[in-house]
Write a protein that binds this DNA or RNA. Structure first.
Length: 105
DNA sequence: GCTTTGACACTAA
DNA sequence: CTTAGTGCCAAAG
């Protein structure tokens, strides 16, 4: 069973409100470098109801993408983040404040 | 079952 | 700052 997506869900679900995570931190928590695989998993998002994939952003703090690389979707993602109390500036999130770190190894 | 794609990350020029 | 190349993993064709 131990699939990356399974771990991704667990990690995303344990992110407190008002916090976000990056593909890098996520992969690190998974003890892997599947930055891209996670992206695919999110994109292919099997169960968006259980996985707040909008909390996953790039290591630069940029939004990255949402439901594809379409601009309108990116904006939507920003709105969701703001709704969680996360301030977004220049299409980027302040990792210094909102980056949630998992149980590091 | 191999090839291509992608919501990434990092280094070099 | 941008562009190009390399690594890494999973899903789709």
């Amino acid at each position: 069973m131990s699939s990356l997506k399974q771990s991704c869900y667990s990690l995303l679900q344990q992110i407190p409100k008002g916090k976000v995570t990056t593909y890098k931190s996520l992969a690190k928590a998974l003890n892997s470098r599947a930055y891209r695989a996670i992206g695919q998993i999110m994109k292919r998002n099997p169960n968006p109801d259980l996985v707040p994939c909008y909390k996953v952003i790039k290591s630069d703090g940029s939004i990255g993408g949402y439901l594809g690389s379409d601009i309108p979707n990116i904006k939507k993602k920003i709105q969701l983040l703001k709704k969680d109390g996360i301030g977004v500036e220049d299409n980027k999130v302040n990792l210094n404040k909102y980056l949630h770190g998992f149980n590091k190894v």
